[in-house]
């Protein structure tokens, strides 16, 4: 399975993702610059965390016009998996690939902690490796991870089982404890916690590997 990791100016989790795939999952990965206009030949696209374009204007607001974005939208439209983590999640909401937006944490602090989470939906291409209602721990590291959407959007997220991860002890003020959501089609996931920073016990947790294993299992089943 071949993963593309998109690198924007200011991305800083691109290499972590690369090593999570290559060393953790033992699959292929390639870092793709934001100037690339093609994502042909990849089976999944990862949008990494960091501070793309310095978080100028709003997080993800400038990245959504990067040259690679039309290719990313076309890739998502084919139904193949797209995973945005942290700043990647912020970029996917700004680009309109996911509903809602990420605001400042309610306590106005940058939070960098291992965070207990619940897998709210394990019947997805991103979470099938987890047991139903699994409790896992992944690191979070963000100042703007407070997920917001209006009541209608929240109702449709719930109705379609699009809420994939929730916080056990909401750290940032997110609506309904939301830590990660997917699109209606189920092939685009955005999450604030960092699975790529939890892929071996040396890092404190290997729970994050489950996300990448799920993608691999889905890919293996469908090829």
């Amino acid at each position: 399975m071949k993963f593309a990791v998109i690198s924007f100016p200011g991305s800083n989790c691109d290499e972590d993702l690369y090593y999570a795939i290559v060393d953790g999952l033992k699959e292929e990965a390639e870092i793709i610059p934001h100037t690339s206009t093609r994502l042909d030949g990849f089976d999944a696209v990862l949008v990494p965390g960091g501070f793309s374009y310095g978080d100028y204007l709003r997080t993800g607001a400038i990245a959504k016009f990067a040259p690679v974005m039309p290719a990313l939208k076309a890739f998502a439209a084919t139904g193949k998996p797209v995973l945005g983590i942290c700043n990647g999640f912020q970029i996917l909401t700004e680009a309109g690939l996911l509903p809602g937006s990420l605001q400042h944490n309610t306590n106005m602090q940058f939070i960098c902690e291992p965070e207990p989470l619940r897998v709210a939906n394990h019947n997805t291409m991103f979470t099938n490796d987890f047991a139903a209602d699994a409790h896992i721990t992944l690191p979070i590291a963000h100042g703007e991870g407070n997920y917001y959407c209006d009541a209608d959007t929240l109702a449709s997220l719930k109705a379609n089982n699009q809420i994939v991860f929730t916080y056990s002890d909401n750290p940032n003020g997110s609506v309904d404890d939301i830590a990660g959501i997917m699109n209606e089609q189920g092939n685009v996931l955005g999450m604030m916690p960092h699975p790529e920073r939890a892929v071996e016990s040396l890092l404190g947790s290997s729970d994050g590997l489950g996300v990448f294993r799920s993608l691999l299992a889905t890919f293996t089943r469908t090829v």
Binding site: L57, R58, A61, F65, T93, E94, G100, S101, Q103, Y148, C149, D150
Partner: peptide, 8 residues
């Protein structure tokens, strides 16, 4: 398209 996020 750019300066405001109509969501919020």
């Amino acid at each position: 398209t750019l300066l405001a996020n109509p969501n919020m």
